[in-house]
Design a protein around this nucleic acid. Structure first.
Length: 500
RNA sequence: GGCGCCAUAGUCUAUCGGUUAGGACGCGGCCCUUUCAAGGCCGAGAGACGGGUUCGAUUCCCGUUGGCGCUACCA
């Protein structure tokens, strides 16, 4: 039986370095055993998924040199490789579970479920579904359906006994069934949840080894039960450690750049990034930390992947990248990388028009546009405070921008402009006054080329980081402020209807 | 609160019962050098705590503490 592994990203938000880490391990394992590595898009969350995000993930992973044998872009014998195109499978197996008495229809309202969980929590009991709809009669179900009451499908879970999950990395893990929730399998919109979809697809795609983040450990019993209900053999499981921020919390973009494209825009080489991630999974030989992909495949050993969550240590990445830059490239190769990075027609072609009307000599170009060729900018709190916004509005503006910009589906000038205008509106300040500190944070100066265009060209990852740095320079924000200010935007008037 | 995972220097790691606990990043010093890097050499720095098991525990077991994850009609 040939080894088949997969990476199954959800196309929401920007491609994450954690995805690259998990992909790398799955890739190495499959290649080492002469097997196949596939990519499947998990887009069952119909509101958050987007084609743009899917494209970005594929591009980012390919950029890193991780290529798959089967996937939405390359096809394969077990397609489609996009869950959004596999609804018929999920419906079929959901019905099978229902017919077999392993799942049931549930008409409970979110409000009731919340109340139940709250009570369970207060009583110190494991939270979960209380079985309210477990024994509904056919007549009752039919009546509810006729009345148009929304419903979901839940899996039945035993209330007694226990189950043992065998993890390739961690050994046996025991769970009491009564602590396992009767998970929703099919949402009221008819789409499956991750739990159903991933079991059905891993089986149908003949996946032999599931290596995924440790955030899935507590769901493993549900998956084991589903394989059991459906009469299928469960793949081998291995739960990989989660990458961490410097403070050991799960790597998050609030505290760190987490986007693969951020590292690309910062000028890290894909080989260096892959090498760095590989170091977290493949212990290097003493004294030599440089490893290319083939070397990692050869040296990979699942049992040697350490389970403690490693801190994403950018300082070490910097050192590694430096070594690649000066040791692995000759003068010509280096020059080519620089061109590919930003000194190319595409990038220059977008910048030049912004500068043309603002310079008197070509030599003005350097100082005017240098921020397009930089990573983080060295701006001071004093520079950020120079405008007319008071300290509170200033910090609120940055927090709101970070949140709204992250939520944007399309990263282009009109959408970016809309966000900044909406902020000025909510804060009841002039656009001119709001925009000024953004000029400083993004371009490094209050006098520069047009802001929205600059942000569009720089890309979301770099913009997010510059805003984060600016906020940090202003003393940062507390979680409470963050919450409150986000609510302000939600309540705020949308950009269109300004005048009251 | 409930359930689970984890625990060697600031960070990434080696060690699979007996080592002066090894390497790498970062940090400090020296050398090289027109500057700065790079490079070379040297140095400081670790087994969370408490019980067991054992002739012997970083290593095996239990507890404590700490960190983390999950606790959704998101993945």
């Amino acid at each position: 039986m040939t080894v088949r592994t997969r990476i199954a990203p959800s196309p929401t938000g920007d491609p994450h370095v954690g995805t690259a880490f998990v992909a790398l391990i799955n890739y190495c394992y499959a290649k080492q055993h002469g097997g196949q590595f596939l990519l499947r898009i998990e887009d069952t969350d119909r509101v958050r998924s987007s084609p743009a995000a899917e494209r970005a993930i594929l591009d980012a992973l390919h950029w890193l040199g991780l290529h798959w044998d089967e996937g939405p872009d390359v096809g394969g014998p077990h397609g489609p490789y996009r869950q959004g195109e596999r609804l018929a499978f999920y419906t079929r197996y959901a019905n099978e579970l229902l017919a077999g008495g392993h799942a049931f229809r549930c008409f409970c309202t979110p409000e009731r479920l919340d109340a139940v969980r709250l009570e369970q929590r207060q009583m110190g009991k494991p939270p979960g579904y209380d079985g309210h709809c477990l024994n509904l009669g056919e007549k009752e179900i039919a009546a509810n359906d006729a009345a148009g009451i929304p419903s979901v499908v839940r899996m039945k879970v035993p209330r007694e006994g226990s189950v043992t999950i065998d993890d390739l990395l961690r050994g046996p893990i025991v769970f009491e069934w009564r602590t396992v929730d009767m998970q929703v399998l099919v949402k009221s919109d008819g789409w499956p949840t991750y739990h159903l979809a991933n079991v059905v697809d891993d089986h149908l795609m003949q996946i032999t080894h599931v290596m995924r983040g440790e955030e899935w450990i507590s769901s493993a019993p549900k998956h084991a039960l589903l394989y059991d209900y459906l009469g299928w053999k469960m793949p081998q499981l291995a739960h990989l450690p989660l990458l961490r921020n410097a403070d050991k919390s799960k790597l998050s973009k609030r505290k760190n750049p987490t986007g693969i494209r951020f590292y690309q825009r910062m000028g890290y080489l894909p080989e260096a990034l892959v090498n760095f991630l590989g170091l977290l999974a493949v212990p290097p030989l003493e004294g030599e930390e440089i490893m290319d992909l083939p070397t990692m495949i050869g040296r990979f050993n699942l049992e040697h992947v350490s389970v403690g969550g490693p801190v994403f240590d950018v300082a070490k990445l910097d050192w590694l990248n430096g070594r690649y830059l000066r040791e692995k490239l000759d003068a010509h190769g280096f020059e080519e990388r620089v061109r590919a990075w930003t000194l190319n027609e595409d990038y220059l072609g977008r910048i030049a028009p912004l500068a043309q009307s603002r310079i008197e000599r070509l030599s003005d170009l350097g100082p005017l546009t240098s921020f397009f060729f930089a990573g983080r900018l060295d701006v001071t709190a004093a520079q950020l405070r120079e405008g007319k916004l008071d300290e509170l509005a200033l910090r609120q503006a940055f927090v709101m921008a970070a949140a709204l910009l992250d939520a944007l589906d399309e990263w282009d000038v009109p959408h970016i402009e809309e966000v900044i205008r909406a902020i000025a509106d909510v804060l009841e300040k002039k656009l001119r006054d709001v925009v000024r500190p953004f000029y400083v944070a993004i371009t490094g100066s209050a006098q520069s080329v047009p802001l929205f265009d600059s942000m569009a060209i720089l890309g979301r990852d770099l913009v997010r980081e510059r805003l984060r740095v600016a906020l940090e320079r202003l003393g940062g924000v507390t979680a409470a402020e963050q919450e409150a200010w986000k609510k302000m935007i939600e309540r705020g008037r949308p950009a269109g209807e300004t005048q009251a």
